[in-house]
Every structure is written in C-alpha cells, then in structure tokens.
Design a protein around this nucleic acid. Sequence first.
DNA 1: TTGTATGCGTTATCAA
DNA 2: TTGATAACGCATACAA
Lengths: 352, 352
Amino acid sequence: MSRPTVNDIAREAGVSLATVDRVLNARPGVREKTIHAVNDAIARLGYIRDMAAANLARSRSYRMAVLLPDGDSQFVQTLADAMQEAAQQAATNRTEMQLVRYPPEDTHALAALLAGLADEGIAGVAVMAPETPVLRDAVRGLRQRAIPVVALVSDLPNAGCDHFIGVDSRAAGRTAGLLMGRFTGNGPRRIAVVAESMLLRDAIERRRGFDEVLLADFPEAEALPTLETHGAPEALAAGLRELLSAGQIGGVYLLGSGHRALTAALGEMGLLGKVVVIGHELTRHSRAALTAGQLHAVIAQNPGHLARSTLRVLRAKADRAPIDEGQEQLRIEIVLHENLPPEPVEPARTSH
Amino acid sequence: MSRPTVNDIAREAGVSLATVDRVLNARPGVREKTIHAVNDAIARLGYIRDMAAANLARSRSYRMAVLLPDGDSQFVQTLADAMQEAAQQAATNRTEMQLVRYPPEDTHALAALLAGLADEGIAGVAVMAPETPVLRDAVRGLRQRAIPVVALVSDLPNAGCDHFIGVDSRAAGRTAGLLMGRFTGNGPRRIAVVAESMLLRDAIERRRGFDEVLLADFPEAEALPTLETHGAPEALAAGLRELLSAGQIGGVYLLGSGHRALTAALGEMGLLGKVVVIGHELTRHSRAALTAGQLHAVIAQNPGHLARSTLRVLRAKADRAPIDEGQEQLRIEIVLHENLPPEPVEPARTSH
DNA sequence: TTGTATGCGTTATCAA
DNA sequence: TTGATAACGCATACAA
C-alpha cells in the first residue's frame, strides 16, 4: 500500500476533492460538520500531505526580498554570499530571492525601498537594520498589506515583525564575558573593550552582557570604558596606547568589526599573543587571526544557517504554515583555533 | 516570465515531449543530431529541471533505515528522538524513515539486520556503530546492491561508506584540550581523564586530540592516564580518590557519557565547582550540570542537525544528486553556561 | 527513432 | 456550501 492521497480522503469522507482541499487549507465555505467528517477521515487514514505535489499544483512562486546594509563589513558580505547560495537552493522550492543593499545610515532610503516593495507583489521581506521610528512605520505598512516581515541579525522588538532570525546579542556578550574571564586567568587584570561605534543596538547589548558576567563572576577583572574608533585605525592605536600607559592589559574584547585594525595595533605594540583577544563573527580576517593565534575566541552565528533559515521562515510565513522552532533556532557559536570549521568554497561574488 | 519547462524545450527544439525526456534522462533511442538540438534548446533557455515534479511523476518514495545502538545512552536517546522528529518533517517529501535499535556489542546481529534490509527495498541506510570486519562486509554488501550507506556520529573509514555525518572526534578532543588548558589557568596542574570504556574509536580519538593540544600548548599541564569506569560509579569514585591522594587535580575531562556519576563522585569529595570539568554532548544531565556550574564546558554536536542532515544526505544519495556540503557540515559546538540553547520541547518518547 | 496520451497528488476555477 | 474538471512539470506506456 502506498500513502493515502486526497482522493482517498474524499472517498472515505464521502465528499469531493475540492472540499477536502478546502478543509486541508482551512479555506472558508465549508460546513462545520463537513470539516469534521474530513478531519476524521484524515486521522483515520493517517494522511500526510505531499508538499512537492502541493507546490507543483500551486505553481505559485514566492518572491522574497532581503535587505542588507551596504558597506564593506566582512560579516555582511559573507551573509550576502550565503544568501545568494541559499537562494539558489531555494529556487528548487519555487522561492526566489531579491537581495537589496541599501546605504547604511540612510533610514529614509531604506523606508522608501520597503514601501516600494509593497507594490511589487513581494511575498515576504527580511531586513537587517537598526531600529528607527521611520523603519518601524515602514514595517507596519508592509504588514498591513499582509506582507510578512522578519528581522535579520539585529532584532526590531518594537516594529511588530513576524519573526526574528539571529542570536540574542546580550547572551552573545555574556558568552564573550565568560570566556574572557576564564581565559585571562585568576589575578587582577584590566580588559579593554573596543568598538567602531556604540550607536548600534547590538554593540550596546553585547557590552551589557559582557559586563554582567564579568561583574558577577570575575570581580578581579575590570572592564574598561569602550574605546570607540569610528573606523579610524589611528584612533584605535592611540586609545590602546593610552590605556596601556595606565597599566597592563589582560585582554581585549572587540565588540564589532575591526579585526584587521586591532591586530595591526596590537602588533605594533608587541602585544600580539600576549593579551587574550575575543571578538565576534567569523570572517576572512578573524579566521586568519584565529589560525595565527592572534585571536583566541570568536563568538559567531552561522551565516549559512542564517540565510537558509531566513528563506524557510519567510516561506512558512507566506504560507501561514507553522515554523520548526528547533531548526530555526540559531546558536551562539564559539569558535577557537581547534574547532575552526573548514573554509567554505568561495561562491561567486555578489554584485551590488 | 516563469522558469522554462520541458514543454518549452520541446517547442524550442522542434521535437516532442517524450524526446526531450529521453535526452534529459539519457535514455537510448535518439539520434545524435536530435540530442544535440535538445541540449541546445536547454542551454538557450536556461532550463532547470524540477526534481519535485519528476519524483511526483515517478511516484517514487524513499524508505530509509537508520540503525542506532540500543542501551540507555542519553545522547543516543536524544538522537533517536531528533530522528523521529526529522522523519516526521521528511515524510512531507516522500521520505520515510525506519528507526532500528540494535543490541550494542553484538556486531553479528547488526550485520544480520543490515543484510535483511537489502531485501526490503530500502533506499538508503544510516548506521551508527563501531567499525568491525563483520560490519564492513555488511556495508559492502549493501553498497554492491546500490544501496547508499552513510556512517553516523562515528566514522567507518574503511567500510567504503558514501558519506560520514558527524564531527571529527580528534578535533573535538583537541577543542576540549584547548579549553581545559585555558580554563585551568597558568600554574602546574594535573588533569584527570575519565571514560566508561576506551574500546570505542571515538574515545580514543578524543583522548589523542586532547593530549596533543595539552602537550603542545600547555606543557605545565599533565594529563593523567585514563580512568576507565566500565559504567561502575564506585570504580569512578575509587579511582578519583586515588588520583587525589597523589596530589591536587585541576580539571577533569570526561571522554564519553557518565555525567551523573562524575557529578556525584565530585560532590562527595567536595570538589564540585573547585575543579574544571569538561565533557561531551548535551544531554539532560550535562545540561543540568552546566546550569548548576558543576560542568564548565561541553563539546557537542547538534542532534537535530545530525538527524536532518542524515535524511537529506540519504535522499540526495538515493537521487544521485549533489550534496550541499556547507549545509551538511557539522560543527564542533562549544556550550558554556552562557550560551546554553533553550531546552527543546519534549517530543513524544521513542518506543523501542 | 519519434510522438501522443495519461497519470502522479495537489490546487484552483468554474458551475451547480 | 459543494462538486467537476483542468492545470502544474515531468515520466512513461504505447502507438506510429
């Protein structure tokens, strides 16, 4: 015996194919009693829906839009690549993706982009951006038109998104704090904290988590005020020098990007390998630093997972189908020299 | 425009549907010239085959078998649960799974089971077992009958499997070693290594990796000979006591299962939280110990990922389709108190 | 060597 | 509120 089909259900329930379909897809216009009869038959026969056939018959394809900030962040670039790869895979399931890079800092341009998407018959939108009132409104606008929106990497807690795909930044910061506390040993020590900017919610949350753990579990450690570099390597070097003049440093926590600049600055000061360095996200540079023993731990999220999860969740939302929480749960990964995953094969470069 | 179909190819090439199908599936009975014309059309239109529709038309379904050792290992039980859950998902894609638990230690029973599967029209087999000559032969037998076989959790390097789904045990051991070295600080210290048995390849490999890193990067640390408990909690307590009498212990590395017994023994000796404990796999017990601060790091592989990956790879092998290496690559996860993922919802218990 | 017609399991558009 | 019936993209038995 092969698996029961909708035809079997129809026969068993004494109704037509169309009615079974209506019940299956929770479409209106069926009497309560009929619904019950169909559901009974489904349960009796142990029917399992064939997704492949369903998708085929729908011959509907889903156009998803993914919005990522432009700029030269290695992490975002890696994510963009992963998105393209996931999209290629998803094309098999009638899901296509349109990747859009928007000028960072320009919230209004982003909002305009989002508003524009609403008219293009888009089935879902994923957006990675800091939360602003303008963005919140744009998201609400989309959702009012029944277009699902998911937040990517950075949560938008007050925008009313359908889902958040990423990790809890505060917990990520706590993890960094725990590692820093354990890696720097037992004596008293000062920990430098470096960031390009503290305007981003992620950086703030990470710092908060980091401090929490250090304060509670490693009272002998002292996390210094954040050194903001604003992307200027000289600022970083100068700042570090100043911190050093006030006493020895046991570790450096890099809140965001800037691995290259940090490695350079530490190298100049002859500190490479002498202080514990912990950072976020696995990029070409952090990977190299990890391999070279200049970086001791990376807190990361898997971009491939992030990308596939995004497309799957958007698809589920578009279908109003439930989400497999277990599968979509992103992990806060800890990457050390010894568990560094092999370099992924270089995909075709994203044109933006 | 939507994607080109076989019909479009047929029209473009000026042949019929059936001919296109013949070319597509490399079936005989087509003139060289016609083949060329069809392939030309395919290239011109950028045709991508819809595998889902193809399988639907074939009305093909896949019966996979997954063989797991029986017994009360928490990890295996968790994996079994994850398998059941993944199977439920996969049923939607015409893939069904038959989970078989075999008596551990009994290689011949396992081999007989495998041989039996060959006759049942199974589309693929996944097996978690230590490598033995008998098992190797059984695997070869299956593969001779064109049934793909994948090794699960523990590799079978000489059995000629189609794929290995799991992590490199030696690298996992190295990771444990690195963490142990860093967590136990700078001074000289002795590290106890505990295992239920050193007969399993995994345990040996982990120990090897652990020693490598400790020797190379932490010369002040001394990894003591493995304390084999053979599942007897008393043996563990006695052994630990003996090690203690010879001097202070800085850390304990638990090579395999036995979290509960270890926690109990350490508790009795008043060592809980005073020595660094590192173990493998996230189970109910290790999770609790991690939360309580009695266990400091767990090296784990994600059972959900393992399960889904297994079914996906088996399916791909059955279709002779390529595998998305990036997606199937299992990570050596490091779990600390701060990045412990939320407890998954309890699935229905596996009956075995 | 090639073409026609039908079916796979589901959805969707009609009409009743 | 229900039911025929025609797609969806591909495979295949059978006819030419």
